[in-house]
Design a protein around this nucleic acid. Structure first.
Lengths: 352, 352
DNA sequence: CCAGGCACTCGACCGAGTGGAGCGCTGACG
DNA sequence: CGTCAGCGCTCCACTCGGTCGAGTGCCTGG
């Protein structure tokens, strides 16, 4: 794979680049004559043919049939995005269009929704946003409400704006006043700390002071532990799937069905995004690279976004492999940055 | 319209019925010869041709082009479902399959999800469920939580299992203890009453005793009013949209895009369902009857479902106009009944 | 009113023919 | 040795004519 890159001289690379750019623009196989004209090199079509034959041998391009032009293979796209692509910086008005979509006062959920909408609208493909992990956001408050015998509603307020409910089923029954005191205790000890820290503290406390604590406090910690317990289910927001119906290279109904199904199930989308969370910059999957059949002819462009220097999630778009990477990549990139900074402005910390 | 029905003699009706049944089965225009053979009548093809010409004049069937067979028009379908159709009762195992999907202990949300899934799986079309109106479910509890300056989280517990949050932005700031007393007051007065009644009561109380009530109580009522205020946003659950990609009569990409878009927006779906909530039995929209362009070649079959004798919502399916109404109608019907009875079992009332 | 028959009309299908795009190969040239 | 013009070939897309079959409309005789 890598030596394919080594073996290519400047001319071959130029030709490959123009071929792919041309194919991305027009969606039609590119022949030697056109390529010779548009490449900017002063070589004849025949020479181009020779080079194209080499490129085909290396598996970077292919002919759909004898004597049609050539189209890029996945490997060709790979090489293209890795080392041939020059990304256009997004135009100022594009940046402004994206930026104006962010309302830093919105709740996290709303922010996710508008972001994925934004992505899909600007790129005319499907946008997706992996919900941020809540590990290190501050727990503002915790309350308990007695619903019925042994059924307790735990309410966690996070970051001063997010609210989470969790219904707990318990062995023992608690009165509302008991619950109130537990909540007071927990709030006094834990408010302002990160969920992560809260969890650790609850566990430690349970171990250390088990004997000293009276039953109620123990129960309180137990409750808190349960409430904070399993982090909110991994989730992802998608939008604009329907844009994908417009691309004729995805016109195969059965494939399309699987694709949309994947958006509904979200499970596989999640898998793809999670593969990208490690990287610290824009990342691209092309076609079957992710190992999924229905992903043929599709590519995904992702970028992680971070708050206070720590990566908390990923966002990206899914579209046909034949997409304008030079336009999409910077869009995904700046969107990730803007989302990160929008998330960074906690209204709880604002003096507002 | 109605006299079309009057004008049809038994023979014409039989022919129309067999024609539509045949078209629904095979999806292909049916000609006079086939129709003469399969109708069961002992008439010649030529006679059938005469009748078909009449039916075409009445706008019930049409020929896609000269000398192809005939296919039903929307008006033909209408007449068919209204007065020609004999519904098959669903097979016992179909009933059982549907019934086994209902878990009466599930939350309302889960119930909606599984129901629409069920509908889409059994019919292989798109299933949808209009969330039940909460007008007359009992308010179990109301609590307030102070989030920050002037920002209050209201928590409503309904029916002992549903929880709703609402963040209220207020002019004045309240302390947590004030809020507590308000909640106590409201709970004492209102718990167990229906949301509808609560609303009415709050309004009446505000008018009658405005002067006597001290500021806090007024504020409490105001809070409750705001919290109960706008009923939970009308919503609808859909599932299995992707099944629609399989029908080649819906293969037009642009239409399909609009259709799926409608499922995402939900607004128009909602409009259609709301038109059906008045009826007390299965109702059918065919093609453009709902006045929506993208609905061409689509039909929707709905049925309202009721709890304790009162209609609280609608469910149904959307599929191609060319669907097996005789199979779909009873499925939608029994699903509505089963959902109604599943909702009727409030766990709050259960001794469990 | 019904049925048989006839002429006619389309659409689907097939096969041949054609034009054009594009390739591979070869041989000449600097 | 790299480059390039030219030739022959392949394959696709498109068109055109012809045939076939399904199906209709209409007319006429029972």
């Amino acid at each position: 794979m890598e030596n394919a890159f080594i073996n290519l001289d400047a001319r071959a690379r130029t030709l490959l680049r123009t071929l792919i750019e041309s194919y991305i623009r027009d969606g039609q196989p590119v022949g030697s004559r056109t390529l010779a004209r548009t490449s900017g090199l002063s070589v004849s079509a025949a020479t181009v043919r020779n080079v194209m034959a080499d490129l085909e041998d290396m598996g970077l391009i292919q002919a759909p049939h004898t004597s049609a032009g050539r189209i890029p293979t996945p490997a060709g796209y790979r090489l293209f995005v890795d080392s041939l692509l020059e990304v256009r910086n997004p135009s100022p008005e594009e940046i402004r269009a994206i930026q104006s979509g962010f309302d830093p006062n919105a709740s996290t959920q709303d922010l996710m929704d508008t972001t994925s909408n934004l992505l899909s609208r600007v790129t005319r493909m499907a946008g997706m946003v992996r919900l941020p992990r809540h590990r290190n956001v501050a727990l503002s408050q915790i309350e308990f409400l007695r619903l019925g015998e042994g059924r307790i509603l735990a309410i966690l307020v996070i970051d001063g704006k997010e609210v989470q409910n969790r219904v707990l089923e318990l062995e023992r029954d608690f009165g509302q006043d008991e619950l109130q005191r537990m909540a007071n205790y927990l709030n006094a000890h834990l408010a302002g700390k990160s969920l992560h820290a809260v969890r650790a503290e609850l566990l430690r406390e349970m171990r250390d002071v088990r004997d000293d604590l009276d039953a109620m406090m123990l129960a309180a910690i137990d409750l808190g532990e349960q409430a904070v317990g399993d982090e909110d289910p991994d989730d992802v927001v998608v939008a604009g799937q329907t844009h994908l119906l417009g691309y004729e290279e995805l016109a195969d109904m059965e494939r399309l069905r699987q694709l949309l199904e994947a958006f509904n199930e979200k499970q596989e989308i999640l898998g793809i995004l999670d593969q990208c969370i490690r990287s610290d910059r824009v990342q691209i999957f092309i076609g079957r690279e992710s190992g999924l059949d229905w992903f043929e002819n599709c590519s995904v462009v992702t970028a992680p976004y971070s708050v206070d220097g720590e990566v908390v999630g990923v966002l990206g778009v899914i579209g046909p492999t034949r997409m304008s990477y030079d336009r999409v990549i910077p869009i995904v990139d700046v969107t990730a940055r803007l989302l990160g900074s929008a998330l960074g402005d906690h209204p709880a910390n604002d003096p507002k």
